[in-house]
């Protein structure tokens, strides 16, 4: 199967791809190409996200976006496997790994397909907060088909499977959010310095609390514009 056929298979019938290659050596042989598809798709999406700010940010985000997809899966996969085993859903590690790779590729290809729409929106000069929301919504929209591919790898039956599945979704969601926090900035505020990574500080939850306060217009000591510019208030 050539790479183009593999891309088509991840979109048309990912479950069949998983069923047909569910053996360790097939996973090992497919893995490099599936990782390549994931990296290329996510990097395309990342480049468009970086274009909101432009300059070096395009390359930085293109570099980081594949990690945003890959790292949460690598970190949470043992927990996902354990949760399903606890719920009496018997799925092998190799099948789970293959389904994750196929799911990641599927999400990345969909992200690349969604990139022109995002580019069009960003070229219209939308404000920073709206641009962030659109990026997050796009990531959720392309991430869900990938998650459903992972879900489809598990056989039917098993007590508490629904609970385990919900747990996996929450786990992957939280892990993706924290990974995104560690890899920021993606869009970069108009006034912020362009940088590959910011120093590690706090976590995504405290940031969400601050963003919620900012979204309601509460900037103690600062005046915010819709574009994302901040002006310090004079006494």
């Amino acid at each position: 199967m050539d790479t183009l056929s593999l891309v088509i298979a991840t979109l048309r019938d990912p479950q069949r791809l998983v069923n047909d290659h569910d053996r360790p050596e097939a996973v090992a042989v497919l893995a490099p190409r599936l990782l390549l598809i994931t990296s290329a798709g996510a990097a395309t999406f990342g480049a468009v996200v970086g274009s909101y700010r432009g300059d070096l940010q395009v390359a930085f985000v293109a570099l980081k976006m594949p990690l945003l997809l890959l790292v949460p899966v690598l970190v949470t996969l043992p927990a996902v496997h354990a949760a399903w085993r606890a719920a009496e859903v018997d799925v092998s590690w190799q099948r789970l790994a293959l389904a994750s790779l196929v799911g990641l590729s599927r999400s990345a290809v969909l992200a690349a397909a969604a990139a022109p729409v995002l580019w069009l929106l960003y070229s219209l000069g939308i404000d920073y907060h709206f641009a962030t929301l659109v990026m997050a919504a796009a990531l959720v929209a392309v991430g869900l088909p990938g998650f459903f591919t992972l879900l489809g790898a598990a056989p039917g039956g098993g007590r508490l499977k629904a609970l385990a599945t919900m747990g996996c979704l929450v786990l992957l969601g939280l892990s993706t959010a924290q990974t995104g926090w560690l890899l920021r900035p993606f869009l970069a505020r108009p006034t912020a310095e362009v940088t590959l990574l910011r120093p590690v500080e706090s976590d995504v939850f405290s940031a969400l609390y601050s963003t919620t306060r900012s979204a309601t217009g509460y900037y103690p000591g600062w005046e915010a514009e819709r574009s994302g510019h901040l002006h310090e208030l004079g006494l």
């Binding site: 360790p24 050596e25 996973v27 090992a28 890959l70 590690w93 190799q94 790994a97």
Partner: peptide, 15 residues
């Protein structure tokens, strides 16, 4: 890059 996904192959030689 992604060793957890390839862990299962470490016990099987390609046939």
């Amino acid at each position: 890059v992604a060793w957890p996904l390839l862990w299962s192959a470490t016990s099987t030689a390609p046939s």
